[in-house]
Design a protein around this nucleic acid. Structure first.
Lengths: 207, 207
DNA sequence: GTCTATATTTTGATAGAC
DNA sequence: GTCTATCAAAATATAGAC
């Protein structure tokens, strides 16, 4: 069996035996992203199935339940966005530039921003199907970013008196909060500019 | 008729003719706050009615629909939290201290934090019943806070090169984002400390 | 003001034919 | 792999008795 934890059957190749199934799964995942962007609870399988042009039963053949589908959407996003920011670059300022680039990139994919914004808030409820996912995710990002700020201290680039972990927490908080305001009114804030200004106030000589 | 826009009948007095009705309404609003804290869409009138100990029909006698009940919850929270921060104090640093105090106070009422966190994210969707409410709210808070930073500039207290509106946007974003991380793991961050550290890096001599 | 009863929709999920 | 048919549960809301 070639099944992952969330039931994702691996594609055999461009003309492999699972090719059609794989294409359908991708279409479902794309539609699910759009629908779940308004929230997991308010989005329905019917809506997703309609967008793909198939029945609910057909959809459930690929993803056995609604919550499994959500997991798959999040896993796919992780896969696609990994390595957009390189926390291991020799220049410790580079990850910060990467985050600014990520913020700018996000401005071109409002659906993805809405998905993470809505789900991260929704999932603060312990019974939410993405609760554990977001807990893990925040721990992981916080660790990586804390490491970056530790190296910046070693390089004498971080303003004195700032704890690396608190800088990481504040950076993540700023990015998250900017998304809410941006989604409510996209003209009010440029997420990339705002984040860069924050870093420039934190790093000796700016980023 | 003494009805407000959201159908809130005003109490006539401690022994007024609407006394019982008013007490029931408050009980409903308290329960609704708890239930809507997990999201408007995922919360049900049945759940709220059960917590109050009455039927759904009885509940709907006081609030004609689910969305009207949500509006009433938000209106009540506004009423109770107004004047916690005085943006008109003669000392322009005082509002910032007020926001730190607010952040510390919020740590004692996780339900309220969860309500705003979840609903503000959910309501970025244009069809959400609280969409207009949160758009207005963010515009209003941003304006007040921008004014505070303008006065801090006039007083020579804001670090040079920082735009008042951007400082306001970043402050609000930071507060919102801290809430998400705090709700996911309350041990990871002290919202008051984090906000104060941010202000100390922004204001000459600290707050 | 509160209840029971009910209408109406919508939902996630299953069974089984093709 | 996809469909039709169907189920069972849950939701919001209304009507009308008390």
């Amino acid at each position: 069996m070639t099944e992952t934890a969330t039931g994702v059957r691996k594609r055999r190749g461009p003309r492999g035996e699972y090719a059609k199934s794989s294409a359908t799964r991708e279409a479902i995942l794309d539609a699910a992203l759009e629908v779940f962007a308004s929230g997991y609870n308010s989005g329905s399988l019917r809506d997703i199935a309609n967008r793909v042009g198939m029945s609910e039963a057909g959809l459930l053949h690929h993803f056995k339940s609604k919550s499994i589908l959500l997991q798959a959407v999040l896993d796919l996003r992780d896969e696609r966005s990994r390595d957009l920011v390189d926390f291991d670059d020799e220049d410790a300022v580079e990850p910060l530039r990467g985050l600014v680039a990520l913020a700018r990139h996000n401005s071109s994919v409002p659906g993805v921003v809405e998905l993470y914004c809505t789900l991260s808030a929704e999932s603060t409820a312990p019974e939410h199907p993405a609760h554990a996912y977001f807990q893990r995710r925040y721990v992981s990002v916080r660790e990586s970013l804390t490491g970056t700020f530790e190296r910046l201290i070693a390089d004498g680039r971080l303003l004195p008196g700032i704890s690396p972990e608190r800088a990481a927490i504040a950076t993540i908080a700023l990015m998250d909060g900017l998304q809410v305001q941006w989604l409510l009114d996209r003209d009010v804030v440029d997420m990339g500019d705002a984040l860069k200004e924050f870093f420039d106030g934190l790093i000796v000589g700016g980023i």
